[in-house]
């Protein structure tokens, strides 16, 4: 699933997605895994791989995505365990927060207003998550 999401995001989506801001499929997969996965060590391995795959094709800050995906995955994992996990909008809240946190850090590091892209990407990620969730439920 990680490889499929990576392949879609890196090779397929840039050609097909009509908007300037693309969904971050690897982040969506990482947050979904953090909500569903039972074993923490296994979760860390998976989310690390998600981030690393994104880092390999990124232009700058190699390792940033791998590190931050582990942080987001851990936070989502522990927070979701103290909340009622079956709440349907919980995934959207975690995904939005992860996206905004990611771009906030980028804005701080580069002193550029990347947070504005983060706002658009949070919306697009949530939209994609709902579409993917519906398709999965129908299956």
């Amino acid at each position: 699933m990680i490889l499929a999401a990576g392949w879609l995001q890196i090779v397929i989506l840039p050609s097909l997605w009509p908007l300037r801001v693309k969904p971050d499929l690897l982040l969506i997969v990482a947050v979904a895994l953090a909500l569903k996965e039972g074993s923490y060590p296994r979760l860390i391995v998976f989310v690390f791989l998600c981030g690393l795959l994104k880092d390999v094709f990124s232009m700058r800050l190699f390792g940033f995505n791998a590190l931050m995906f582990c942080v987001y995955g851990s936070l989502v994992y522990f927070l979701s365990r103290s909340l009622y996990r079956e709440t349907p909008w919980l995934a959207f809240v975690f995904l939005s927060c992860a996206t905004l946190a990611h771009y906030s850090l980028l804005s701080l590091i580069f002193f550029s207003p990347y947070i504005l892209i983060g706002l658009f990407e949070a919306v697009v990620n949530c939209l994609f998550l709902s579409l993917a969730g519906r398709a999965y439920a129908r299956k």
Binding site: Q9, I10, M59, I117, E121
Partner: peptide, 14 residues
Amino acid sequence: IIARDPGNWSRGVV
């Protein structure tokens, strides 16, 4: 071109 930058904040290709 074999791949594109997966992020939305930088623009690059491989």
